[in-house]
Amino acid sequence: MSQPSTIRLERTTPRTARITFSNPPVNLVIPESIVTLHKIVSELENDPDIQVVVFASELPDFFINHFDATAAADIPAPEHEDDNPLWTDMVLRLTKAPFVSIAAIRGRTRGAGNELALACDLRYASREKAFFGQPEVGLGLVPGGGGGERLPRALGRDRALEAILTSADYDADTAERWGWVTRTLPDAELDAFVDATVARLASFDRQALATAKSQVNRATLPPDAHLVASFGEFAGTLTQPGFAARAVGLGALVAEKGLDVEYQLGEYIGRVSEAL
């Protein structure tokens, strides 16, 4: 269902950058995506001028989607034995970076894509076109990229449990009401609002922005070790029979229904389990 991903980094001004994701047809995260994102985030983290970074998508129906689990074996191992898994290291760096990160969400974002959005400092979503989900449990997996750690802090325990355990899709209005996103806007106003926010933050003092972000991080971030543990638990479920059986069932639905499975993934996940 995927082609090699295209992740484009554009330095829009001396103080701002834009990372655009494009992996038609449904913006799946694949191993190359992880390697490229890690390289870009590490580069920007060490740039003394960058103050604001925006994540966006070229596909109007998909922001950044879930990970392509069929390619899990191709995720590069950490360079050193004590290094964090590459995805975990990337989202930890993103959350702690001295720049402000903004997710401009138009379309569906689930699993790893949702976890990347949660790692961003601000999340602005199209009221008409954004949808959110953590589909792993419905497929016999568990979240591995920070969803299990960040959603409870954003939504509260019970809502996080509902979102993770049911593996359902949630519309933008619900996401805003629950605190999943910073705010939603009419789709026609999303880009202008994000651009204005970027310009405002880029005009401020970089050190003040970074220090204020660090203060909030101290009060809100989960321990790094919890995210590392979750990635290990996710990797473990990839080899379990529960996932194997559901992967076959989902594959059969994809063969029958095509891309509609990705458009309505929350609904189709329920059908997979009912058929077992």
Score class of each variant (00 low, 15 high):
Asp61Gly: 07
Ala202Met: 10
Ser57Ile: 01
Ala77Thr: 09
Lys213Asp: 04
Ala208Lys: 14
Gly232Met: 11
Thr174Asn: 04
Ala275Gly: 03
His66Glu: 12
Leu209Ser: 08
Gln51Arg: 15
Asp83Val: 00
Ile105Tyr: 02
Phe243Ser: 07
Ala202Phe: 12
Leu155Asp: 10
Arg246Gln: 11
Arg106His: 09
Leu37Gly: 02
Ala247Gln: 15
Ala125Cys: 07
Thr239Leu: 05
Ala245Glu: 14
Met1Lys: 06
Asp173Arg: 13
Leu86Lys: 11
Thr174Lys: 13
Ala112Tyr: 11
Trp87His: 08
Asp82Gln: 05
Arg127Pro: 00
Pro48Val: 11
Gly179Lys: 10
Leu94Pro: 04
Thr239Ser: 14
Asp68Tyr: 15
Glu45Met: 06
Val35Lys: 15
Ala275Pro: 00
Asn27Trp: 11
Glu32Asn: 14
Leu155Thr: 06
Pro135Lys: 13
Asn217Ala: 14
Leu155Gly: 06
Ser214Gly: 10
Pro48His: 12
Leu122Gly: 00
Ile40Met: 14
Ile64Leu: 12
Leu259Ser: 05
Ser101Trp: 09
Glu162Lys: 15
Phe231His: 14
Ala160Tyr: 09
Gln264Pro: 00
Gly113Asn: 07
Leu253Trp: 06
Ser5Leu: 02
Leu185Val: 11
Ala196Pro: 04
Val142Gln: 14
Ser273Cys: 04
Ala73Cys: 01
Val54Cys: 07
Glu45Gly: 02
Leu221Pro: 01
Ser57Cys: 01
Asp47Ala: 11
